[in-house]
Simulated scan of single mutants.
Amino acid sequence: MPELIHGGAIINGVRLHYAEAGDGPLVVLLHGFPEFWYSWREQIPTLVEAGYRVVAPDLRGYNSSEKPNGVEQYSLDKLVGDVVGLIDHFGEERAHIVGHDWGGVITWEVAIRHPERVKKLAVLNAPHPGRFREAVRTPDQLRRSWYALFFQLPWLPERLLSVRDYTPIRELFRNAPETPDAFSESDVRRYVEAAAQPGALKGAINYYRALFRDGVARELRTLFDGSTQDFDVEVPTLLIWGDEDSALGTELTEGVERWVPDIRIERLPDASHWVQNDAPERVNDLLVEYFEANRFHPENGRE
C-alpha cells in the first residue's frame, strides 16, 4: 500500500472522510455495503503505480464520514451531489469514477445526470438502473433481492445485523467470496469496526430505504403523468461482473447496450459479488488497461 493521506472535507453539507494517494488524473473509488474506503486496498497501489491520483471516500453514513439523520439524507440526489462535490474539492472538472455495489449504483447515476464530470466509468457488480428496473419485476430477481425489502423495516435490520458482535457481517465476508483468502481475519475485523461506528448501520441501511422511496415516487409519476426516467449513459463504460453473485444474476449484464452504447462488459466466472477481492489482479489489469486507452502522454503528444 502506498502512503495514504487521510483527510476530510465538508461536501454537499456533510463531512466526508477519504483516503488519498498518488498524483495524476483523478480516480474516485466508491465502495458498497457494508464496506468503507478499505474495500479498495487491492486497487489503490496498482492505480497509483499506473500514474493516477486515487481518492477513496467513506460514503456518507459509513465509517468515519458523517452520518446525517433521516432517510431523505440518503437519496440519490444527495449521493450524486457528494461525488460531484468531491471532484470539485480536488480541483478537477472530470474524473474516472469506479463503483462497486452501492458505489456502483451511485456511479451509474453520476454518469446519467452529470456526464460532463466523468472521463470514464467502471462499475463492479452493480446493475444499470434501467436493466434492474426490468429485472426486479421477475420472480427470480425478487427472490434474490429479498434483503432490500427486509431493510425497509424500521430498526429491526440494524438490530439483527449487530447481534452477537456483528456475526451476520462477519459471516458475509467469510462465506460469500469465491476465493478463500479474499478477506483475512484482520480485514473482517476492520469491516466490523467500521459497521460498529455509532449510527453507521442505520446510515448504510437508509440507502435502501431511500432508494425504495425514490423508486415508488418514480413509478407513481410514470403512472399519473406519463413521465419517464432517462437512463442513457453517454460516457465510455466498463462493466466488471463476478458471475457467482448470489444477489444479482448474470442476466443483469444483458441488454445494457440499449442505454450504454459505449460499453465493454467483462464477466469473471470464478468471482463473487466481491469481485475486486476475489480477483484483484484481473480487476486491476482491466481498470488500468481501460483507463490507459487513449490517455494523453505529454512525452510524445499522443492521445
Rank of each mutant, 00 (worst) to 15 (best):
D187K: 06
G242K: 08
F183Q: 05
I205M: 01
A195Y: 01
N175Q: 12
T228A: 13
Q197L: 01
F224T: 15
A247T: 11
S162A: 13
V216R: 13
L223M: 06
T250A: 15
P236F: 00
G255V: 05
D262K: 08
P168W: 00
D230Q: 03
P261N: 03
V233Q: 02
W259T: 04
V256E: 00
I263V: 15
Y207Q: 07
D262M: 05
L268N: 05
F231G: 02
D181V: 11
D165P: 09
Y207P: 15
Y191V: 11
G226A: 01
D181R: 09
D245L: 04
T222Y: 07
D245P: 11
E185T: 09
R213Y: 07
A200S: 11
P198L: 01
S246N: 10
G255D: 01
V216K: 12
V256S: 02
R267T: 15
I263S: 07
E266L: 11
R190Y: 13
I265G: 06
T253M: 03
I240G: 02
Q197A: 10
N175R: 15
V216L: 10
A204R: 03
G242I: 03
A196H: 02
R164L: 13
D181Q: 06
R221T: 14
E193A: 13
E185Y: 06
G203H: 00
I169A: 05
Q197M: 07
L220F: 08
Y191Q: 05
A200V: 06
A194K: 08
V163M: 12
L201Y: 03
D262W: 00
S246P: 15
P261S: 04
V188Q: 02
S227N: 03
R218V: 15
V256P: 04
S227M: 09
E251S: 15
W241K: 13
E193R: 15
A176E: 07
A195G: 08
P198Y: 00
Y207V: 12
T237S: 07
P236K: 02
D245Q: 03
R213S: 09
D214R: 08
V256G: 02
G215M: 02
L172M: 14
S186T: 15
E171T: 11
E171D: 11
V235K: 13
P177F: 01
G226S: 01
D187I: 07
R267L: 11
I265Y: 12
L201W: 01
I169F: 00
T222C: 02
F183R: 10
F224K: 14
E244S: 10
Y208E: 06
